[in-house]
Design a binder for these strands. Structure first.
Lengths: 223, 223
DNA sequence: GTTGTAAACGGAATTTATTCCGTTTAGACT
DNA sequence: AGTCTAAACGGAATAAATTCCGTTTACAAC
């Protein structure tokens, strides 16, 4: 009724095997399926390098990988899903950095600092592969927010926010703090408005005072 | 290279005649063009009422309006543009409310209060027509941020933020504060996570302390 | 080694948005 | 009224994503 797209639970076997794979139980994957996933991802990477993100046509990817388009869709759900899988691969290293690496990104620094470091790092991540993120964020809201990268980021920030402000609605604040780094908005700020990554980072810092402000954030508010 | 879509300056004669029309000089519009715009918008409204947003197929709208699809595209640029035009019509009243209405939404209240009232009002606006907003935000980043509703909102908030925090990067903060109300995210929070509009409003309030915090927002930050 | 079956596969068919371009007209100027 | 031209029009053609469904295959059980 609201939107045509919806992706049934079992339709996408694995949207990418990032840290997320740890959460769900490691459902088995048939050998041919695994082989095809790798093949498709490789082919997609190759095409992207050659022709850019705009050249990532589903038919071409399928052909380059030597599979039918049906297989592409079974594996990744849709074009955006493919993009997320690609991003997830590259994001593995950042995930490791903020979970096990040195502070302030990794554990050891105070939570507010870590959130800040994380957002700055996320800016760099976007900077690196903006077009691919744009393609990924084409997905329906449902797909988008269940995707590997988003879930990992959200979970991480959410935990840190809760730590920094146990009284606040950490779940919401986390999503709100991540929102300005939506690929669409970021692309617009960089390309249309000509903002520099540095300016964006400082801007984010200004937003972050909601993490360091004492308990009473509602000082000026009525209801 | 990055994305196929781009909409040349003169391709869309008027993306909707909201307050925006005041900014650009009132370029003339041929009589038949105006008649068609109205017809299309009416037809689209009718179809939307009957079949929902998902039923808004470009061919159907064109047929129902008694014009060719080419005309649809000349007038509105693309499917998302049509959605924006539809929203712009309904948004006229909210625009009036925050520009000329009573406080705290309208002039008279302190700027931080007004931003808060505005964000809350925006939640209600989303609530009213979420699917249409989702359809609209399908647009390419460029189109999206040049669209009537977004420009008006951004300008408004931006002015208020500058007033509240003359020292801060008002332009950026405004976009960042509006970001959590992106239709995608909002829809996800409402539908998947089951957050209530009230919870979202309180969440936004927590974010807003960056407007009331004294001058030194960078207290906890290094560089 | 057979057999059974859920899971995968392929790729033609379908669905829609969007473009293209030859034709038609509103409206300004004479 | 007649002419001229930029602006509009229509709708067939195109492009690409996504679905459908009959066929094939991995692999677990016997």
């Amino acid at each position: 009724m609201s939107d045509t797209r919806d992706i049934g639970e079992g339709r996408i076997e694995e949207a990418g095997r990032g840290l997320l794979a740890v959460l769900g139980q490691p459902r088995p994957e048939r050998a041919d399926a695994a082989r095809n996933r790798r093949g498709i991802l490789e082919a997609a990477g190759r095409i992207m390098a050659e022709r850019g993100v705009a050249g990532l046509l589903m038919n071409d990817v399928a052909e380059a990988a030597g599979v039918g388009v049906g297989t592409l869709y079974r594996r990744f759900g849709d074009r955006a899903g493919l993009a997320y899988a690609l991003l997830d691969e590259q994001g593995r290293e950042m995930q490791a950095a903020f979970m096990y690496g040195p502070p302030p990104l990794g554990p050891g620094a105070p939570p507010a600092e870590r959130v800040r470091a994380f957002l700055h790092a996320q800016v760099d991540v976007l900077e690196e592969n903006l077009d691919l993120w744009l393609m990924a964020d084409t997905a329906s809201p449902t797909v988008r927010h269940r995707s590997g990268p988003h879930l990992v980021n959200l979970t991480h920030v959410s935990v840190l926010v809760r730590e920094a402000r146990p009284d606040a609605d950490a779940q919401y604040l986390a999503e709100a703090l991540l929102a300005p780094l939506a690929a669409d908005l970021y692309a617009h700020q960089r390309r249309e408005r000509g903002m520099s990554p540095e300016r964006i980072k400082s801007g984010l810092d200004e937003l972050l005072c909601c993490l360091t402000a004492g308990g009473d954030a509602s000082s000026a508010h009525g209801s």
